[in-house]
Design a binder for these strands. Structure first.
Lengths: 381, 381
DNA sequence: TTGAAAGCGATACCAG
DNA sequence: CTGGTATCGCTTTCAA
C-alpha cells in the first residue's frame, strides 16, 4: 500500500487518521492508491495499536423485546447521525430457565475491542460484571435501572409521572376501585407499583389499593388477573380478609418469582388457557375492581385476555391500561390506553450524554424523561 | 503475566489455546497465575496474530422485526450450545426514506475481526457488499433469499407449501373468491404470491385470482385492502374490467414501491385512518372476495383493520390469514390463522450447516423447512 | 516439552 | 513531510 502510493507507511496512517498536517496533494495520492487496491486499514490492528476502538458499544439484553429494539434503533440512528460507529453486542442470553445471564465468552471480546463508550439498554442483571469497563469509559444505561452504580448515567422515563397520568385519567373517568397487576420482575416494576400506591393515596383511594403480583409477561398477567377477579369455590369470602388499607396477594411461586425474564416477550395466551376456568367464581361486581393498571402493555394484554375469558367486557366492565405504548397497543382490535415513555427522547438524551462526555461519569446520575398519556379504547367512558 | 507464572510467553499462549503438548504442572501454574492477575488473553491481539477471530458473525437486518429477533435468539442459543462464540452485528440501518442500507462504517470492522463463519438473517439488500467475505468463509442466509449468490447456503421455510396449506384450508372451508394482499417488498413476497396463484390454479379457481399489491407492513396492507374491497364513486364498474384470468391491480406509487422496508414493523394503524373512508363504496357481497390471504401476519393485521373499518366482520364476511405465526397472531383478540415457518428448525439447520462446514460452500444451495398450518379464529367456519 | 525470535497490521514518536 | 524503530498482545515456527 505504502509502495503503491509511493509514500511512507506513516503518511498512510496519518491520512486515514485525518491528520491535518498532511498536504492535500499527498492525501489524494494515498486515497487514490487505496481506492485502486481496495485498501482500508485493518481495524483490529489499528485498535490494538491505538488502544481505542473508536466506536460505541451497545449492549442489549433481549432483542425479542420490541421496546429495547425500538430504543436500540433510535440510538443507532442518532449515533450514526453524529458520525459515530456503533457496534451492537448482545452479550446477554436467556438460559433454559428463562433467566437472563451474561455470556462470559462474548463480554471479554467487547472489552478487548476498546469501545470509546458504552450504552446498556434495559436493566441488566449483575451489571457489576461490566464494572471494570464502566470505570474506564463513559457509560449510560438507557431505559433501565442501575441502582447505586458509580460512574453510570441512567436515562429513563419517569415512571411516577407515567403512573400518575394513568391513575388520574382513570379517576377522572369515575373509577375508584383501581387495582394493579405487576410489581414483580425487577427493573421498573417496583417504581410503577410504588407510584400506583402513591397516586391512589393522593386521590384518597388508599382503601382500594389492591396489587396482584405479576411480571412483565402476558402469561403471568393472565394468572394474576384471574386471581384478582375470582374466588375459588373452596375459598369463600377469602377476599374480605384483606388487612389494613392495602391488600397485596402473592402469586403462587413460579419461575417468575426467581427474578427472571425482564420484559420477555411471550404472547401466546393459548398455552395457558385453563380447562379449570369454569371452577372459578367471579367476585361480585360491587366488590371487584372496575379498572386494572398493568405494569406494561404485554401484561395489559394478559389482563384483557383474562378479563374476557371470564366473561367480562373491556372497557364496559373493567377498564385496562398498559405502559410503553408498544405497537401492540395501537392495533384497532386492542386499542389500549397506555403511556408513551418517549423512547426517541431517551435515545436522544443517551447519545447526547455520551457525546458530551469525555472520560467516565462521576458518581451516579439519572436523567428522567417526561412520559405522555395515550388514551385509547380500553378506558373508554 | 508470563513473569507471574514464571514461564515464557509462548507457554501462556499454548495453555490458553488448549495445546495438548503442555504438561499439567505447567498448565496449572499458568492458569493459577492468570486467576491471580485476572488475566485473560486479549482477544484482538489473538485474532490479529492468528488471523482467525474464532467466532460466528451474525448479521441481522432489522432488530425491530420480531421474526428476525426470534431466529436470532434461536441461532444464538444453538451456537452457544455448540460452544461457539457469537457476535451479533447490525451492519444494516434504515435511512430516513425507510430504505435498508449497509452501514459501511461497521462492515469493515466485521471483516477485520475475521469471523470464522457468517450468518445473515433475512434477505439483505445488495448482499454483494459482503461477497468478498462470503467467498472466504462459510455463510448461510437464514430465513431470507440470496438468489444466484455463490458460496452461500440458504435455509428458509417452503413458502409454496405454506401458502398451499393456507389456500387448501380456505377452500375446504368453502371459500372460492380468495384474494391475496402482498407481492411487494422483496424477499419471500414474490414466492408467496406465485404460490398463491399456483394454489388457486390447482383448485381450478384461476378466475378468482385477485392480487392487491402491498408490502409486509400493516399500513400498506390497510391501503391495499381498502382498494380491494371498495370502489371509489368516480370509478363505477372499474372492477369489472379485469382481463384474463388474473386481476392484478397496482398500488398507487408510494414509498413502498421503492423496494423499501422489508418486514419493517410499524403497527400504528391510527396514523392512517383516513377521513375519506365514507366516500368509499363497498363492492357487492357477491363479487368481492370472501377470504384474503395476507403475505404475513403484520399485513394480515392491516387487512383485519381495514375490513372492520369498512363495516365488515372477520371471519363472518371475510376470512383472513397471515404468515409467520408471530406472537401477535396468538392473541385472543386477534386470533389469526397463519403459517408457522418453524423458526426453531431454521435456526437449528442453520447452525448445523455452519458447524459441519469447513471452508466456504460450493455453489448455491437451499434447504427448505416444511412449515405448519395454525388454524385460529380468523378463518372460523 | 520449552523458550527465543519473528511476525500480524497498524500507531506513535523521533530525528532528519 | 520522511523513514526508521519501538510497541500493542498474542501466535507460530523452530531450534534447543
Amino acid at each position: 500500500m505504502a509502495a503503491e502510493a509511493g509514500v511512507s507507511k506513516s503518511l498512510v496512517s496519518m491520512v486515514f487518521n485525518d491528520d491535518p498536517r498532511v498536504s492535500d496533494v499527498r492525501r489524494k495520492l494515498v486515497l487514490d492508491a487505496a481506492q485502486r487496491l481496495g485498501f482500508s486499514p485493518n481495524w483490529m490492528a489499528r485498535s490494538l495499536a491505538a488502544g481505542d476502538g473508536d466506536f460505541v458499544g451497545v449492549m442489549v439484553p433481549d432483542l425479542a423485546n420490541p421496546i429495547f429494539a425500538e430504543i436500540l434503533e433510535g440510538i443507532r440512528a442518532e449515533l450514526r447521525g453524529a458520525g459515530q460507529r456503533t457496534l451492537v453486542s448482545s452479550a446477554l442470553f436467556t438460559d433454559a430457565g428463562g433467566n437472563r445471564e451474561f455470556d462470559d465468552r462474548v463480554l471479554p471480546v467487547l472489552r478487548d475491542m476498546h469501545p470509546s463508550s458504552l450504552v446498556v439498554i434495559g436493566s441488566v442483571p449483575s451489571l457489576d460484571i461490566v464494572q471494570p469497563l464502566m470505570e474506564r469509559i463513559p457509560t449510560v444505561v438507557a431505559s433501565g435501572t442501575a441502582d447505586d452504580l458509580e460512574h453510570v448515567y441512567v436515562v429513563r422515563n419517569d415512571d411516577v409521572i407515567g403512573i400518575d397520568l394513568i391513575v388520574d385519567h382513570l379517576v377522572e373517568r369515575g373509577h375508584r376501585r383501581i387495582a394493579h397487576v405487576g410489581g414483580a420482575g425487577g427493573g421498573a416494576a417496583v417504581n410503577r407499583r410504588d407510584a400506583y400506591e402513591g397516586a391512589m393515596r393522593r386521590h384518597r383511594l388508599a382503601e382500594h389499593i389492591e396489587i396482584e403480583l405479576s411480571d412483565y409477561t402476558t402469561e403471568r398477567a393472565i394468572e394474576a388477573t384471574r386471581r384478582l377477579l375470582t374466588r375459588s369455590p373452596g375459598d369463600p369470602g377469602g377476599r374480605a380478609g384483606a388487612v389494613g388499607d392495602a391488600a397485596v396477594r402473592n402469586a403462587a411461586p413460579t419461575a417468575a418469582g426467581t427474578g427472571a425474564a425482564i420484559g420477555t416477550q411471550a404472547l401466546h395466551p393459548d398455552d395457558v388457557r385453563p380447562s379449570a376456568i369454569e371452577n372459578l367464581t367471579l367476585r361480585p361486581a360491587g366488590e371487584r375492581p372496575t379498572a386494572i393498571v398493568a405494569v406494561n402493555d404485554l401484561a395489559a394484554l394478559g389482563v384483557i385476555t383474562a378479563v374476557e375469558q371470564l366473561g367480562l367486557r373491556v372497557p364496559e366492565d373493567i377498564a385496562v391500561t398498559g405502559y410503553d405504548d408498544t405497537a401492540l397497543s395501537g392495533i384497532d382490535r386492542i386499542s389500549l390506553t397506555t403511556v408513551d415513555p418517549r423512547n426517541e427522547e431517551i435515545s436522544h438524551e443517551t447519545v447526547r450524554l455520551l457525546l458530551d462526555a469525555d472520560g467516565p461519569f462521576e458518581g451516579h446520575r439519572e436523567r428522567l424523561v417526561i412520559p405522555r398519556l395515550v388514551v385509547r379504547g380500553s378506558t373508554a367512558a
